[in-house]
Design a protein around this nucleic acid. Structure first.
Lengths: 242, 242
DNA sequence: TCAAAAGTGTTAGTTCTACACCCATGC
DNA sequence: GCATGGGTGTAGAACTAACACTTTTGA
């Protein structure tokens, strides 16, 4: 590394490091995003991804989980079980007009859409349907688009979809995750076979098949399995991106 | 965001932001990594990934490309054409004993292995076979392992393999990239068919088939195509990771 | 003439896709 | 009953894996 001799941390204009969260969920067949309304300049009144500064003795992952708990109002135990994954880091020098801010973005997948409490600190927090999201503050449009693209791609070759589901779920719910994120309908019988023949994707919950939902035959319940990758993958039709 | 009112950038102990590079190439059937020997504490004398500080008005991607040019000694034009991709950001508070350093790691894929010039600034730079890499400084073992895993996975569903090849290459060279990174032999006829039937993966170079790598029938030359994704993917046998 | 690597062909097995069809439940 | 969603079956298409065979070069 090019370490200047006797490098003094305070010699440079310092960088601030933040985390930004793209918190996604599937609610009633639509992809939703958790957004907060900014309370102060810059971009006061504009919607933005939740996030905040990384504390001096904290990793970015820990900061992300802390912010996630604050913004959703969920218990620490619940938040500990959520899927949280580093997405990408955004470093353009002028992405924040105030100062040099490097942001480590995370994608969080949330099973059920609990109405967020407004967050301890600041303005309103709300779930918005993905395709009704207005222009966001900073480069958050870009971050959100990247998150959506990444999630869509990872559904193909990982077991990620179960992270959108509650601990016990039906195959219909799982299929709806795919259909919602990809925006295409899938063949029910084929989806079922594919999931059940992939070892470790899901495991059946013992006991009588209970139901979930209104009409129709009661569906069997499943839990997420041990597997993390999908071999072979579950490809979206036509290889289309959305 | 939790922005403290009247936030003063210098109120916190500042973060330093660096880039670290996992520069990979395939040389004579083995995966190689570009490493530098550290000239100063901490970890003086230990091998490490090349990298350096992000300058105040520079994006991390620009810093990565600048460092890559410095360490390999290649021309700016050449470096501009190399595949450089953000891998992940490493933020553990104690990853550098001197101070709080957040590192944005990049993966670079280099076609031909030009011997690195020692780098303008510091110690020796050298290509080492991946499986002879000793313990590295900081958390660079982890970064390197992550890079290798990511590259192996991306070979399956992207056209990334061409980034390891010179501008014009034979299918045998392309196949060797896969075999080397995955560590498994592939069936030549099937590989050929797969590549040629994937639209936009490679395009034939006009003119008489040239390039005799020594023995054997001369092979036709190809260029990288327009496509970036592979649908359907080229799965490694057994879904194994290495 | 032999070894090595390119390139073509073929076949059996598997997986995927697109349906048809029956089942259990709420209204 | 009937609409709705769960679950099973199946025939054809598409794809994959394995391997036999020919071609063209260097030694």
């Amino acid at each position: 590394m090019n370490i200047p001799e006797g490098y003094d941390p305070r010699a440079f204009e310092p960088f601030a490091v933040t985390v930004d969260l793209a918190v996604l969920t599937v609610r009633s067949g639509r992809l939703h995003v958790l957004l907060v309304q900014r309370g102060q300049e810059p971009y006061a009144g504009t919607w933005a991804l939740p996030g905040g500064f990384v504390l001096p003795r904290e990793s970015a992952g820990a900061a992300a989980r802390r912010e996630l708990a604050e913004e959703t109002g969920l218990s620490d135990a619940t938040v500990a079980g959520l899927h949280l994954e580093q997405l990408r880091t955004y470093t353009e020098p002028d992405r924040d007009p105030r100062m040099r801010v490097v942001s480590v973005a995370y994608t969080a997948l949330v099973p059920d859409p609990p109405e967020p409490r407004g967050g301890g600190d600041a303005a309103e927090a709300r779930w918005l349907p993905y395709d009704e999201v207005p222009a966001l503050a900073f480069d958050h449009d870009r971050i959100l688009a990247d998150a959506r693209e990444r999630v869509g791609a990872k559904l193909e070759y990982t077991c990620l979809a179960t992270a959108f589901c509650p601990p016990e779920f039906t195959l219909g719910e799982l299929r709806q995750v795919y259909e919602t994120v990809w925006g295409v309908p899938l063949d029910r019988p084929n989806f079922r076979r594919k999931v059940l023949t992939t070892p470790g994707f899901v495991e059946a919950v013992e006991g009588p098949p209970r139901r979930t939902g209104g009409r129709g035959k009661p569906a069997a319940l499943y839990r997420a399995g041990e597997a993390t990758a999908l071999h072979p993958p579950l490809l979206r039709p036509e290889g289309r991106s959305a």
